[in-house]
Amino acid sequence: MAGNKVAVEISKELYEKAAKFIEENGGFKDVAELVEFLLQEAIASEDEGVELSPEDEEKVKERLRSLGYI
């Protein structure tokens, strides 16, 4: 573990495939970044990255109701 990072193990074959994907498509600086991105995509919760108190959420719903969206 270094800083706030932890190590995970994946098969060498998959690692090499991922490295080749990055070489061909870009978008990620290394395999770790690709793995982190894919995990985020797969398991991020609905509200992640969205700061909204229950009161504010109710205010949003109130506007949506008044406009007929819900």
């Binding site: 969205v50 909204l52 959420e57 949506l64 819900i70």
Partner: peptide
């Protein structure tokens, strides 16, 4: 304005639906 939703609003709406 009556038709304009912002990201926080569509996100709440999709969750609600």
């Amino acid at each position: 304005e009556r038709y304009t939703l912002w990201p926080i609003e569509t996100r709440v709406l999709f969750k609600e639906k």
